[in-house]
Structure formats: C-alpha cells, structure tokens
C-alpha cells in the first residue's frame, strides 16, 4: 500500500490487517512510555486546508508516538494566500524531504491529484464530501472491539442517521462496515440521501450503496444493534435540504424518548464534533453503550497503524526489493 486515499481501495484482507495492527498500536499507547522508534528519521507533514484541530492532532500524536518528525502546514498563514498554487506548495514541501503527507481539503479528489505531484505517501484526512478513510478505520476498529467480534461485523445491524448526502464519513464508514459483514440502514429524509439512491435505483447504485434506506427513525430503532449519528450542519437549511434544524431534530435526532426505546446492549457512535440538541438530544456520557470517547482514543491507534504500514520497516524493505529487481 503506497497511499491511503479511499476505502474503495482497501480489500477485506487489507482492512483486517490494519485493524490487527491497530491492536498492537493500542497496546503501545497503554505503556508508561507510549513511544516506539519505528519511524525514526521519517517526516510526516500535515496539510490542513480545512480547520480540524482534532483530526490533525490525532495524526500528529500518532506520528510522534512512532518517533516520526512532524511538520504542520497551516493554510491560513501560508503562501497559498499569496496566490501560490497548491501544486507548487506540495512540490516545495516535498523538496524539504517529506515522507508522507496527511492532507485535508474541501476539494474532493485532491489527495489523488497529489499523488501525481510528489513521490511521498499520501494519507487522505478528508476530501470534500468524498472520503475520510481513517475515520472509517477507527469506526470499524472501535465497533469490532466493543462487540468483541474479532475482525468482523457479521450480522451486526447498524443504522446510520443523518446527512449522508454531504458526508465523507458516510461514504467511507459504510464501506468499511459492509466489507466486514454488517447490515447497514441509512436513515434520513430523501433530500439528505445521495441523489442516486433517490433517483436511479439501478444495479450500479445498489453496487455502490449496498445498504437499505429508511425515512422513519422510530421504526428502525427497534431493529438495530448500533446507531451511528452524523453531524447535521445548520447551513443545510439554505438550499432547502431541511425545513429547520428543529424539524430535523424532532424526526431524526436521538431524543430521550427514542433512547428509552433502545435495548440496553445497543451501541452509540458519532464522528464528532457533536451538535447537541440537533442530532443528539441526550448526554452521551449517560448512555451506557456510547462509544464516542473510544472513537477518539482509537483514532490515534488506527492512524499509527496506517502510518506504520505506509512508512514502516516492512514497507521499506519491500520497496528495496522491488528496486533491486528493476
């Protein structure tokens, strides 16, 4: 694996390998000295063109625990604002000796384009509404470990609720859950489902979205083991995707009444940051099945696993082998 751009690029085997590697990483994190020399002399640069302190810190912590040097590129104070093209920025930073770029940008497909501009490894930390693969990995890791199912989610029934249409988390995490054998139901008003699911019910659509859909959260809640809430953005009102945030919360929010109907064993997930009172109307700290904090903790382990498998000794020796064969 040279890059991590999209969950579509990962086979079940590769996904399971990363989950197992994340187990080892989480062991390291529990040590008194949570640091190993695996990536000494490697440089990981984070390029965040969209604000996300939590994801950036999660990646940088992961890199530091593997002893990599880290570089932070902040779009706000950079020459991007002086009209430098993104490509020039990437080429300039590459020339300083970067081994891996962790990139977040509002433009879908940018991480893929970057692979043409640099020899470094690229990790997609979120591109538009397209993909956010490390979120999918940490979700899969968190849920499989919480349910103690090994590297599988066979038969687990999951409702993903909210703005699927604009969500890179949905596009990535649904793929991971389905690969691991889960049965996923997307719950949202039609306007917030991907258009192909509403307008073109073709074999192609069903292949891209191997899920069922529902517009009735109350009906679905009785039949699921896991509820995954997505963040609802207020701006969605502007293009008439929803009537109002209140109307959305009433029908698609996790209210105390809905919580009461769920079995004790159910698990609650959310990619953060949460909109309290919108998609979530209960205090997650008081929900026994909430995995939301574990998701954050596991984020570091999973990102360590990704960086290690891209940059670690195994990857290096393989690359040397290939070079000798040429």
């Amino acid at each position: 694996m040279k890059h991590l751009l999209s969950m579509d690029d990962l086979s079940l085997g590769e996904l399971q390998h990363l989950l197992s590697l994340a187990d080892e990483m989480s062991e390291i994190q529990k040590r008194a000295q949570p640091k190993v020399p695996a990536l000494r002399n490697k440089t990981v640069a984070s390029l965040f063109f969209e604000d996300s302190t939590r994801t950036r810190l999660s990646f940088e912590t992961a890199a530091k625990r593997l002893s990599a040097d880290t570089m932070t590129f902040s779009a706000a104070s950079s020459s991007v604002n002086k009209g430098e093209s993104l490509r020039d920025t990437v080429e300039t930073l590459s020339a300083m000796g970067v081994d891996a770029f962790v990139v977040r940008h509002k433009t879908a497909g940018l991480p893929l384009a970057m692979t043409q501009w640099t020899d470094a490894h690229i990790v997609n930390a979120g591109d538009g509404a397209h993909q956010h693969p490390t979120q999918a990995l940490l979700d899969a890791f968190t849920l499989t470990r919480a349910l103690e199912l090994g590297n599988s989610l066979a038969g687990v029934r999951i409702a993903m609720v909210g703005d699927i249409r604009h969500s890179r988390v949905a596009r990535s995490t649904v793929r991971a859950f389905v690969l691991l054998g889960a049965k996923v139901t997307l719950v949202a008003p039609a306007s917030l489902l991907p258009p192909s699911l509403i307008y073109s019910d073709t074999a192609e659509t069903r292949h891209e979205w191997p899920v069922s859909t529902s517009h009735d959260l109350d009906e679905v809640l009785g039949e699921v083991d896991v509820v995954y809430l997505l963040r609802m953005q207020h701006e969605r009102m502007n293009a008439a995707f929803i009537s109002s945030v209140g109307e959305y919360a009433l029908h698609f929010g996790l209210t105390p009444q809905r919580l009461a109907k769920l079995p004790h064993s159910f698990k609650l997930m959310h990619p953060g940051p949460m909109n309290h009172g919108v998609e979530i109307g209960v205090d997650p700290a008081l929900v026994p099945g909430s995995l939301i904090t574990q998701q954050v903790t596991n984020g570091v382990s999973v990102r360590m696993a990704v960086l290690l498998s891209l940059l670690g000794p195994a990857a290096t020796s393989e690359m040397t082998k290939e070079e000798k064969n040429v």
């Binding site: 879908a108 397209h130 699911l197």
Partner: peptide
C-alpha cells in the same frame, strides 16, 4: 445547479460531488 461540477447521478453520489441534475 448551484455549486454543481458534474452530472447528478451514480458517479457524483459516489464521489461526493455536488451534482447537476
């Protein structure tokens, strides 16, 4: 077509790009 960059359909749904119906 506000913000749209490609045809609204299967491909745009997959790429997460705003579609042009």
């Amino acid at each position: 077509t506000e913000g749209a960059v490609m045809h609204e359909g299967c491909c745009s749904s997959h790429l997460g790009l705003p579609g042009w119906p």
